[in-house]
């Protein structure tokens, strides 16, 4: 999967301006950058949730807009922040919807087995019959991830999955993201605000400034005092913890 010269304008102002990069398979790629740098917009274009003005999103050799939506739903999943579901669905029912692109209305035994595995994997078994609007934020987020696991896609796109979660739940969420890649072999692309989560849990970082890619590279390449200072316009120090670069900003 790669994007080339991606552009998106709102009211004549380019929010995404000539963005190009390749997405390495089986890795975790974090998109970081200041507010309004266009990272969420790029994620939404990658997942065909919003249309681009120009440029190319290539997905397995074909432009993403030429994919049939049902076929694409078997290969690429996205969770946005707008998933504040108020519906009274049980966890089990929600996760079963992940099988919808495959089976539609006729859920097979195989589907149920996959749903069951997803629920077990996310440790949601005790909550399976609870309504999602009664769950805590962290549990609800896990239920949505379980649905994505049941959807069994190669690519998983997450828009600020740690948003509104406390440190404990946010860290757990990042560990889950890592496992999605390491255990299940998925390519995970996510938008993050917390740089250190990006540094600790991802393979690559894509830093955005003003709708452009300021830097795309391995964690070590981007987690650099000068690079980060330029992106965020604040002073940075880089520390080494457990062999990984972490940042302090002030």
């Amino acid at each position: 999967m790669f994007v080339k010269e991606l552009t998106k304008k709102y009211d004549g102002k380019a929010v995404v301006d000539g963005v190009s990069f390749d997405i390495p398979k089986r890795s975790v790629i974090s998109m970081i950058g200041p507010n309004g740098a266009g990272k969420s917009t790029v994620l939404n274009i990658l997942s065909r949730l919003i249309a681009r003005d120009s440029g190319l999103v290539d997905f397995e050799g074909q432009d993403i807009s030429h994919w049939k939506s049902k076929e694409l739903a078997k290969r690429l999943a996205i969770l946005t922040q707008s998933n504040n579901i108020q519906m009274k669905l049980t966890v089990q029912e929600l996760v079963t919807f992940g099988r919808f692109p495959y089976s539609g209305n006729h859920v097979t035994g195989e589907d149920m087995a996959i749903v069951e595995r997803a629920i077990q994997y996310m440790e949601l078994a005790p909550f399976r019959d609870r309504f999602i609007d009664e769950l805590s934020g962290g549990q609800r987020q896990r239920a949505l991830i379980a649905m994505v696991i049941a959807q069994d896609t190669e690519y998983v796109l997450l828009d600020e999955p740690t948003n509104n979660l406390d440190i404990y739940h946010a860290t757990n969420m990042m560990k889950i993201v890592r496992r999605l890649c390491d255990d299940l072999g998925k390519t995970v692309i996510l938008v993050l605000h917390e740089i250190n989560y990006a540094a600790f849990y991802s393979d690559y970082i894509c830093a955005f400034v003003d709708g452009r890619v300021a830097r795309f590279g391995t964690v070590r390449e981007v987690m650099n005092k000068e690079v980060l200072s330029k992106i965020y316009n604040v002073d940075f120090e880089i520390l080494e913890i457990e062999g990984k670069p972490l940042s302090i900003y002030y």
Binding site: S47, A73, I78, I85, F97
Partner: peptide, 14 residues
């Protein structure tokens, strides 16, 4: 049901 969960949600499921 799926449409009731929003535009993004339904697009994700095709």
């Amino acid at each position: 049901n799926i449409v009731g969960m929003g535009k993004d949600f339904s697009k994700n499921l095709g």
